[in-house]
């Protein structure tokens, strides 16, 4: 694919994003926002899992930190600008990551996964128990959603689903672009190196814990942005979003879409958003379905859809060559 077609494709995609709410209506516009939030969440987690080789069963806590950060700030501070509220969500998640990082960066893969599960459960319990801060099971809802704009010059109402859609697309798109860019930098090389052979990275003169720590902050912070947008979108955040099932969701999306690639998790998020629309209509056994999908993917399609696509492609090319 040459540069020109690439730009044209991106242009087409941009136009699609712009017309989407006008064509598909409010319901599907909201579905799309849900999808992009899930996509950002998964891509962030995949920075750890797919690129650096670290599995976490607790990243819902960073999503939650972002969401609660934004929600609490908006509920308590009058006239807080929209972007600042998102930034507060982002910083809450980064802060949580900063606290945990020194503890977790030296752990082995298994211990890392387990500790996150434990901390995830802890955060869930705290969110339920610390009622006066988090609102317990009811969560925090009905906080004011600020308009987007410059006071006195212009102001866009964010309670309007279409307006919010454009706002969410801008923030999430920008964050996704940053994450994609990071994978292309020398630091991105380093991440993949840690995944492939951490010992050698150490013997090439890179400091492992510090490097992992930076990835950890980036992943955590971006989960926080996803959470922050979620809180604004739903105008509600409750302890449920911190539940361990919510930590499994991105892992599943990553596995189904393709753990080895940047775009796999986005594809996975898309598939699950669609499946979610379908399964909730026909069955209550969501966990059962998720469990079976996880087993099937690990057993038969370890590299997910993208991996399966590459497999088919090489097979096709071989047959063509023969």
């Amino acid at each position: 694919m040459n540069k020109k077609t690439k730009w044209i494709l991106w242009g087409v995609f941009l136009i699609f994003l712009i017309v989407y709410p006008l064509v598909f209506g409010i319901y599907y516009t909201n579905v799309f926002v849900t999808f992009t939030i899930a996509a950002l969440f998964s891509v962030s987690v995949n920075m750890l899992l797919g690129f650096t080789g670290f599995l976490s069963f607790g990243h819902a806590m960073f999503f939650g930190a972002g969401a609660y950060g934004t929600a609490i700030a908006l509920a308590h501070i009058k006239g807080l600008p929209l972007l600042i509220s998102v930034f507060i969500g982002f910083m809450s998640a980064v802060l949580l990551a900063l606290i945990l990082a020194p503890l977790v960066v030296r752990l082995s893969v298994t211990a890392f996964a387990m500790i996150h599960m434990a901390f995830g459960m802890l955060m869930y319990t705290l969110a339920l128990k610390l009622r006066n801060i988090t609102g317990g099971e009811d969560g925090i809802g009905g906080f004011p959603i600020p308009s987007f704009g410059v006071p006195g010059i212009f102001s866009i109402d964010m309670t309007d689903p279409t307006n919010f859609y454009y706002f969410a697309m801008a923030i999430i798109g920008f964050t996704l672009w940053i994450l994609w860019f990071i994978t292309k930098t020398p630091f991105g090389c380093l991440m993949v190196g840690i995944r492939d052979n951490a010992k050698r990275i150490d013997y090439l003169g890179f400091k492992l814990p510090q490097t992992k720590g930076v990835v950890y902050l980036i992943a955590g912070g971006c989960c926080g942005i996803a959470g922050s947008i979620f809180a604004l979108f739903q105008n509600l955040i409750s302890a449920y979003e911190l539940h361990i099932m919510h930590s499994f969701t991105p892992i599943m999306m990553i596995m189904v879409g393709g753990v080895g690639s940047y775009f796999g998790p986005i594809l996975g998020a898309g598939i699950f958003t669609m499946l979610g629309e379908l399964t909730t209509r026909y069955t209550e056994r969501v966990e059962l379905v998720i469990g079976l999908i996880l087993i099937a993917v690990i057993m038969y399609f370890p590299l997910g859809c993208i991996g399966f696509y590459h497999y088919l492609k090489t097979k096709y090319l071989k047959r063509k060559a023969a």
Binding site: F181, K184, T185, F187, G188, C189, G205, F206, T211, V214
Partner: peptide, 15 residues
């Protein structure tokens, strides 16, 4: 990259 001391460069495409 290590030889050049490039360790935390997140701002430039390596290619």
């Amino acid at each position: 990259l290590s030889k050049r001391g490039i360790r935390f460069n997140l701002f430039q495409k390596v290619d």
